[in-house]
């Protein structure tokens, strides 16, 4: 039994749990975007940050991967945490202006507009990587991955053409936190081939 505090409230956890899992088990809500229960956490969105305080000193860490430890002092909604989340959401608003889910989440934190330049007003993909993780870890098809890097990073199948490794299960569409995978789905799955060496296709 590992005992520590979240928001000044005593909580108990077992070794191997993360701070996020413990918080959720105790009904404490921490927002996430790139986290999904079916796959390993990746820590890409940083939205689940919590503040760890030790005396005068504090740091922010991501709760989805931070292992529980005896005596932690965790704050899930402090000023510092709220500030980090607001920055993230403001940047996401610029990155994915078309996503209703991001707009709603930003509104919850009082972020209505963004000071950053919008490069693609149609973009919805936040590059959380959930689609490719689900495809690899749950489905086992490994059809898609991130392609490129930096500002040119996007999600796609190898060579950005439909691949027959895709089994068209739609798990990527289901786990996508925004509507991004919906529009990309047809570029990945192409047309399912049902040819037993017979027929037109």
């Amino acid at each position: 039994m590992i005992k520590f505090k979240i928001n000044d409230q005593q909580v108990q956890a077992q070794p191997g749990w993360t701070v996020l899992e413990t918080a959720r088990q105790h009904g404490i809500n921490i927002p996430t975007l790139c986290y999904h229960e079916a796959v390993e956490p990746s820590g890409a969105c940083r939205l689940c940050v919590v503040e760890l305080r030790e005396g005068d000193w504090s740091k922010v860490v991501i709760s989805c991967m931070y292992p529980v430890a005896e005596g932690l002092n965790v704050y899930t909604d402090s000023q510092r945490v709220k500030n980090v989340r607001r920055w993230i959401l403001e940047m996401l608003l610029a990155e994915c202006p078309a996503s209703k889910e991001i707009q709603a989440l930003a509104a919850e934190y009082g972020v209505g507009s963004t000071r950053f330049a919008v490069h693609n007003p149609e973009e919805q993909c936040i590059l959380c990587g959930l689609c490719s993780r689900v495809c690899a870890q749950v489905v086992g098809a490994n059809a898609i991955s991130t392609v490129g890097r930096g500002v040119h990073k996007q999600i796609g199948a190898p060579y950005m053409i439909p691949t027959d490794k895709c089994v068209a299960c739609g798990c990527c569409v289901t786990v996508c936190p925004t509507g991004a995978m919906r529009s990309r789905f047809d570029a990945v799955r192409g047309v399912p081939k049902v040819v037993l060496a017979h027929g037109a296709r």
């Binding site: 490719s132 495809c135 690899a136 490994n142 059809a143 898609i144 991955s145 991130t146 392609v147 490129g148 890097r149 199948a157 190898p158 060579y159 691949t163 490794k165």
Partner: peptide, 12 residues
């Protein structure tokens, strides 16, 4: 290594 991962590395 699955092709998608190798492609991700090659483009990175």
């Amino acid at each position: 290594v699955p092709m998608s991962q190798a492609y991700a590395v090659a483009t990175f």
